[in-house]
Design a protein around this nucleic acid. Structure first.
Length: 927
RNA sequence: AGGCGCGUAGCUCAGUUGGUUAGAGCGCUACCUUGACAUGGUAGAGGUCACCAGUUCGAAUCUGGUCGUGCCUACCA
């Protein structure tokens, strides 16, 4: 074995082996356990969030697989309608073409080509993580089977009147030329202006204070071209008399009425509002109440259309805005302009300002679907972890709006609806079926709706469509409902809620029993990772490493704003002066687990991954030690329990405790605690103590062959069990070592991933053994402390005396002389019956027992005094605290007996210690 | 505006139903290449648990408030 762990030498080949041999497929035996992967974008690439969540899912799947479950981790990708179409359009643009030049069919062919070509990137990266998903069942939302499910669902909902077509305001993306849902709109505060316009009163009307105009304020002047009314609050004294009067709409040669509506806040602006029903959600509602006309003044590009005065037609909306402000000013109708902060809605993909726009769209009537979905969480059929995410879910679900599912794209599931010349709607799987279903004449001309469905519509069916629905398949029976969904809180609305609704509706089952909501990975300063900030970490770079130059090139590559490149380069070079080292997959995964606590933000710190790389190296070297000491002699299972040393029994006991902690952590989705438990056990107990305690046995000429065999067996046995314990989290290194270890134990098996998880055995837990080892550790640490504080060379073997202890201390000494001598590097260790005979010595206490290192020639008196003073100070503080507590009658009266008893014991022992150390101090001071 | 979360060592984070001397990793100090490992070992230093008040015999933990910070939802034209 190499002296250090080299992950890159083993990872790829092990993964290949596992996949080739079909280990990721369901075993077909045992209870089922199923996780559905949140399908990533087929043309995307792996980011830290994917890495984090998939590492978690893999740990759960591997754990359950080893527990004997029939596990399915369903893998797949989605078609990401807008994102993917945009990429291909941009490519075409590079060739000077638009999608219209190609036409719909050819364009869609192009997208498929792109998908074939780039679709492997992310799945290849997922394999690098060691993710044990069943690739033979990989699905894609645009697959034939899934597409069939999508159509089926659409048709059934339509036939039940739960899908309808309606003309209303939607969020229109003028760049992408499609409607997008509320969730795809990002509202961010930006600096804008408040323009105050005068609208002249018609027919000589006057305001209460004698003016011949009213003033309105707007942030979007161009919308005035579509104004249908002015509105005031009915109780607003200033405007009461104007209600029902008419104003001249400037620049438009139209008159519009003044209406009264409670919607208007008299306190805000001028208390008088222009109403533009076709371009504002609130105005739309006001317009409906007052039967105002809908005047749409924008085109699909958000340019001014023919409904507006000729002067503005064809102008872009922002150009028109400027022109209108100039024209109003020229007409003397601009009262003032104020700077104003407002929330600007932008498309999350395109980044352009979204317009409320009047179009025909398809909607899902959501209320009847939402009710059972709310109930399923209320009654506990589905549980969120951590629980408080349920509130977020409820808040949204109880105020849910109908879902706009049509998108004006070419890439996606085509809406299965046809129209005749009169605009009648026919819904069915295909034209032929539609004609039959609606008994239409063969010669009736039908045109299919050009739109496609929102990608989330197909993702909402993910848990059952991937298992073969609408067919009644074996897989559905076996794996549905699934066990747990692992995802981020950012898509509770987008995906989780919609999945619950659709799955309940069409299968009558919940999609999953638990929703484990993970935190979001941010950079070490808590910033969201984003291309524009140049702080994105690529999980693959953490695995393979990357030079600083390559990293800088990557961060500044194809930036939207090239002027940021310099800044990013500087920051990148500062954070990663040497680039990123190759830490390997296991280290990366372990880092993710250690961060998987209940918080919602996770700051990814490079120090952590380095620590876990070192942990892997520690495991590697521990294995080297074990193999070096067992390979030649081999071992067999000891026939007599007595052959085991105290240390052997102790590490077996500690292993069981660790196993319990791991099971508890897995049950509670606390992978951070699991990873901590394994780390502590392996490093701080197995390596730091057990391996060291094995040396005195293996290298002791007086030890019997049976004893040595028992220790060799325990070394191997605990190592082998630890590998299985850690395998779900560190799949590669555990497999590699396991393969080398098992021959020595005569364990059969092709792969660690198909082995049983270590078995619980409460009989192995032995508190007496634990106590005795703690005593051994205590004495060793006492000596080491003196050594460290007194600057005694670690190379120097020293004599030690034990005194003032109990019978059991004496017994412990007799039992453990070998351990003590070796681990504390002692020249001798002896029991002193009469403390009076003790030589001048540096003293440490283990309980009442005094550990003495004779000072002769070793120890500086003043250093020892200082050390004792430090100890005495500490004890005095402790005693004062305990006396205060126990002196408080109320404490003694109210606290539970055990607690009081415990405090009393602490006090007694501290007092004893203090006395002993003070005596010692006196003795030294007399010199 | 409403809702949710966070504030514990220099940094990244744990801390179970209130009861330990408040923990881990990284970083820091000193010593050490001893026959698994310097990606290591040994011994240390380092915290008024944001702040204030309350409940309690007892608060990092429970309650109220303040400050700081992050996110989500809804919005004012």
């Amino acid at each position: 074995m190499d002296k250090t762990y080299q992950p890159q030498q083993i990872e790829a080949s092990w993964y290949q082996t596992w996949e080739d041999k079909g280990y990721f497929r369901p075993s077909g035996k045992g209870d089922s356990y199923c996780i559905m992967i949140p399908p990533p974008n087929v043309t995307g690439s792996l980011h830290m969030g994917h890495g984090f969540q998939q590492s978690i899912m893999d740990a759960m799947i591997r754990y359950q697989r080893m527990l004997g479950k029939n596990t399915l981790w369903q893998v797949g990708t989605d078609h990401a309608g807008i994102a993917t179409q945009m990429v291909v359009e941009r490519q075409l643009q590079g060739e000077g073409l638009s999608k219209h030049d190609l036409g719909r069919d050819k364009f869609v062919d192009k997208v498929w080509e792109w998908k074939e070509q780039s679709g492997n990137t992310i799945t290849r990266q997922m394999r690098r993580l060691g993710a044990s998903m069943d690739w033979t069942r990989e699905r894609f939302t645009m697959d034939e089977g899934l597409s069939k499910a999508v159509a089926e669902v659409f048709i059934r909902l339509y036939d039940e009147k739960l899908i309808y077509r309606g003309k209303r305001l939607v969020n229109w993306d003028p760049k992408l030329h499609t409607a997008i849902s509320d969730l795809e709109v990002i509202n961010e505060e930006e600096n804008g202006s408040f323009w105050y316009f005068r609208y002249p009163l018609a027919e000589g009307a006057k305001t209460a204070d004698g003016k011949d105009h009213v003033v309105i304020a707007t942030t979007r002047p161009e919308t005035m071209l579509g104004d249908a009314a002015l509105a005031v609050n009915p109780d607003d004294e200033r405007y009461k008399d104007l209600i029902g009067k008419v104003v001249e709409l400037p620049l438009c040669d139209r008159q519009i009425p003044i209406i009264a509506d409670d919607y208007v806040d008299p306190e805000f602006g001028t208390g008088c509002v222009k109403i533009t029903p076709a371009h504002d959600y609130n105005d739309y509602e006001v317009g409906k109440r007052h039967e105002l006309p809908l005047i749409n003044i924008l085109s699909d590009d958000a340019a001014i259309n023919d409904n507006a005065p000729a002067a503005y037609q064809g102008m872009d909306r922002f150009e028109a805005r400027k022109q209108i402000v100039r024209d109003m000013e020229a007409a003397g109708l601009l009262e003032k302009v104020e700077p104003h902060k407002l929330k600007v809605p932008r498309g999350d993909r395109s980044g352009v300002v979204i317009e409320p726009y009047l179009t025909n769209q398809w909607y899902v009537a959501i209320e009847s679907l939402a009710k059972p979905a709310i109930a399923a969480v209320e009654n506990g059929d589905i549980e969120f972890v951590p629980k408080n995410w349920e509130n977020t879910y409820f808040a949204w679900m109880r105020d849910i709006q109908d879902w706009c599912i049509s998108r004006q794209l070419w890439w996606g599931h085509r809406i299965p609806a046809w129209y005749d010349r009169d605009g009648n709607i026919y819904v069915g799987h295909d034209e032929k079926e539609v004609r039959q279903k609606y008994e239409l004449a063969d010669n009736l001309e039908l045109i299919q709706d050009p739109d496609v469905l929102d990608t989330w519509f197909s993702s909402a069916l993910w848990t059952f469509s991937t298992l073969g629905w609408p067919e009644d398949t074996e897989e559905l029976k076996t794996f549905h409902p699934t066990d747990v969904l692992v995802t981020g809180f950012d898509i509770i609305f987008f995906w989780v809620a919609r999945m619950i609704m659709m799955t309940l509706k069409f299968t009558g089952q919940i999609p999953f029993r638990k929703v484990y909501i993970t935190g979001l990975i941010r950079d070490s300063e808590g910033q969201k990772m984003s291309k524009s900030k140049g702080n994105v970490l690529d999980p693959i770079d953490l695995i393979d490493g990357i030079s600083i130059d390559a990293l800088v090139a990557k961060q500044t590559d194809s930036m939207m704003q090239p002027q940021l490149a310099q800044k990013i380069e500087k920051a990148t070079r500062k954070h990663f002066p040497e680039g990123i080292a190759a830490y390997g997959t296991d280290a990366l995964r372990y880092t993710f687990y250690s961060l998987a606590s209940t918080g919602r933000d996770i700051n990814f710190d490079m120090g952590r991954i380095e620590g876990f790389r070192n942990f892997c190296n520690k495991i590697w070297n521990a294995a080297r030690y074990v193999l070096m000491n067992t390979e030649e002699q081999g071992c067999s299972k000891p026939e007599q329990p007595e052959h085991f040393s105290l240390a052997d029994r102790w590490i077996q006991s500690r292993f069981q405790r660790t196993l319990q902690a791991v099971h508890d952590g897995m049950a509670n989705y606390r992978l951070d605690l699991v990873s901590q438990a394994i780390y502590d056990f392996f490093w701080n107990e197995y390596c730091d103590w057990y391996l060291e305690l094995s040396k005195p046995v293996l290298w002791d000429d007086d030890a019997t062959e049976e004893q040595k065999n028992a220790t060799r067996y325990t070394l191997l046995n605990i190592l082998e069990q630890s590998l299985r314990l850690a395998h779900p989290f560190l799949p590669f290194i555990t497999e590699e070592i396991w393969q080398r270890v098992t021959p020595l134990l005569n364990v059969e098996g092709e792969s660690i991933m198909l082995q049983a998880y270590p078995a619980s055995d409460d009989n192995v837990i032995d508190e007496a053994v634990d106590k005795e080892i703690n005593w051994v550790k205590g004495v060793i640490e006492a000596v080491r402390n003196i050594r460290g504080e007194m600057n005694i060379s670690p190379a120097k073997a020293i004599p030690v005396l034990l005194t003032k202890g109990s019978k059991s201390d004496e017994q412990n000494l007799a039992n453990n002389k070998q351990f003590l001598s070796k681990l504390a590097k002692l020249e001798s260790i002896d029991w002193l019956d009469n403390p009076e005979q003790a030589p001048l010595a540096s003293t440490q206490l283990v309980g009442k027992l005094e550990v003495l290192v004779p000072m002769a020639g070793l120890i500086d008196v003043s250093a020892e005094k200082e050390r004792l003073h430090k100890e005495v100070d500490k004890l005095e503080k402790e005693i004062a605290r305990l006396q205060g507590k126990l002196g408080n009658e109320k404490f003694v009266a109210n606290a539970p007996g055990e607690v009081v008893e415990k405090e009393k014991e602490k006090l007694t022992s501290a007092e004893n210690s203090l006395t002993q150390l003070q005596q010692q101090l006196q003795k030294i001071q007399q010199l």
